[in-house]
Structures are given as structure tokens and as C-alpha cells.
């Protein structure tokens, strides 16, 4: 990797607490970054407590999944994912009016190729108001890429970033109506709006180092993060929550139509009520 790359160590601890002993639980963690053009994974592992044998596979979307089941009685379940990743800066960005045209995006072959990423999903479906917003933005911009950037700006201006304002089940419409949300909601809104315009778009889950001027060796509290990618002749990524291109501070874990395709940890258990869950992400810039 080039001299301007960063080396990041990410530790992601998450899990559940129950009101009493749980007899059995089956889970899947999507918490492992994988190698791709923008990042190189030096080391990645997932550990589970109580101890369980883990099974790794790559799902339909290409995300690395760690599956495990626990059969010893337990009152808390903890999953810890650690990874060391080299990341590159944003690289060559598409100029505002460049990229595919609306006509090019409407070619039947293109529509068929990205069909799955043009359809609404439960969390990205729009209501009438949002559909009109999409139409208006599309009308104002001759180039899809420029329209996408404008969409990101609009959503960021309209929806206030308020941690805890929404949950994992919240959809785009609800977040829009309350004008509050987190990175997940902002990304769902952008993805939904872009698809309504006819621009193929996907939801990305990963990690973000909070500081552009990170000190080397300092462990800071990071975030489990989400952003978006859209296709205008090629795929391009953008972080609408922070209004920045995706660069050396971002680590990609998974891509899909929405959160439901890339949840960091989900599963089923049999036992008493789930009384709590905690997420803790620590990011350290190593180089």
C-alpha cells in the first residue's frame, strides 16, 4: 500500500444480556473486513464468549459471516471482532457532472444488471413525499452523480444526527418524518432516494475512525458505521452522515440492499427476555 495509506486496528465488542439463563442460541456475526481494492486485511478474527466453535462463510453479498451456536447456559453473550486493516485515501473522485447520464442508466441492460439495487426494501421504501423529493432532485441535475451528491447534502441537512433516536428496525420514512436518526437511517434515506431516481445504490456497513488527524498509537472510541455507494458507470462511495468521501478512515465490512443484509450480529435464542445489548468499538491508528 502507498505511503498515504493508514493502518488501523479495530476492535468491535458487542453482545446481549438476558434476564436469566439462556439454554441455546444461534448467531451470525458480520464483523470481518475483507480484502478489496481500497483496503488490505492483515489480520481478522472473531471471538465468542461463552466459548463456541465458529464457522465462517461468505454470503450472497460477499460478506464474511461468522456463525456459531452456544448450548451452555449463559446470561450474557459477547462477540469480539478484531482486525488490522490498511486503508487508502479516497482516490480519484468523479467530478460533479461526470459519470453516466440519466439516459445511460435507463438502458434496459443496465437496469437488468443492477435490478436488485434499484428496488425498494423494507427499510428503504419511500412514501409519496420522499418520492417527490427524489423526482425534484433528479429534475434539477443533468448528471446522476451530481444528483446523488445533492441527495447526500439534502439528507444531511434535514436529518439531525441523534444517537439513540432510532433502532435497527427503523425505516427511511420514519427517520425522515422525525428528522432525526443515525448513520443507518441517513444511509437508508439516501439509498432509497437514489433508487427512486433510477440510480443503482447500495448500503455499506463498516467502521470509521472519528478523527481526520488521528495520532498514531492512540486508541479512541470509534463507531460501527454505515454509508452508501452508487453506480454511475462505476461504483463510487460517499459517507452522507459526515458529508465526506470514503477514504482512509473507513473500513468496509459488508454491502447489501440495506441494513437487513449486513447486520453486525443477529440470531435467535431460547430463554428469558433480552435485557440489554452493548456495542463498543475501539479504533487505533497504527501507521
Amino acid at each position: 500500500m502507498s505511503a498515504s495509506s493508514w493502518r488501523l486496528r479495530v476492535q468491535h465488542k458487542t453482545g446481549f444480556t438476558y434476564a436469566g439463563p439462556v439454554g441455546a442460541s444461534y448467531n451470525e456475526a458480520r464483523m470481518s473486513p475483507r480484502n478489496e481494492s481500497h483496503q488490505a486485511v492483515l489480520d481478522a478474527r472473531v471471538e465468542v464468549w461463552p466459548p463456541a466453535r465458529t464457522y465462517r462463510y461468505e454470503d450472497y453479498w460477499g460478506t464474511v459471516v461468522t456463525a456459531f451456536d452456544v448450548h451452555a447456559a449463559h446470561e450474557t453473550l459477547q462477540v469480539t471482532a478484531s482486525a488490522t486493516v490498511e486503508t487508502l485515501p479516497a482516490g480519484d473522485l468523479i467530478a460533479g457532472d461526470a459519470g453516466a447520464t440519466w439516459a445511460e442508466l435507463a438502458v434496459p441492460e443496465t437496469v437488468d444488471r443492477w435490478h436488485e439495487l434499484l428496488l425498494p426494501t423494507p427499510r428503504t421504501a419511500l412514501d409519496e413525499e420522499l418520492t417527490e423529493v427524489a423526482e425534484r432532485i433528479r429534475g434539477e441535475h443533468p448528471a446522476p452523480h451530481a444528483a446523488a451528491l445533492a441527495t447526500c447534502t439534502l439528507v444531511r441537512e434535514e436529518v439531525e444526527y441523534v444517537p439513540g433516536a432510532t433502532g435497527v428496525q427503523t425505516g427511511a420514512v420514519q427517520a425522515w418524518r422525525q428528522r432525526k436518526g443515525v448513520c443507518q437511517d441517513i444511509s437508508h434515506l439516501v439509498v432509497g432516494l437514489l433508487r427512486a431516481m433510477g440510480t443503482p445504490a447500495r448500503y455499506v456497513s463498516g467502521y470509521l475512525h472519528p478523527s481526520p488527524a488521528a495520532a498514531i498509537g492512540e486508541a479512541v472510541v470509534g463507531q460501527s458505521h454505515a454509508w452508501v455507494e452508487w453506480w454511475v458507470g462505476r461504483w463510487t462511495a460517499f459517507d452522507p452522515t459526515n458529508g465526506i468521501p470514503v477514504g482512509e478512515r473507513h473500513v468496509v465490512v459488508g454491502r447489501g440492499r440495506e441494513y437487513g443484509d449486513v447486520p453486525p450480529l443477529k440470531g435467535v435464542y431460547s430463554g428469558p427476555e433480552n435485557s440489554g445489548q452493548g456495542v463498543e468499538v475501539t479504533v487505533t491508528r497504527l501507521r
Partner: peptide, 10 residues
Amino acid sequence: AVLWVSEAVA
């Protein structure tokens, strides 16, 4: 039969 409950965390 076992009754399962689904759970997820962001």
C-alpha cells in the same frame, strides 16, 4: 418444541 426469539444489534 423450542420457542425461538430473534435478536439483533447494530
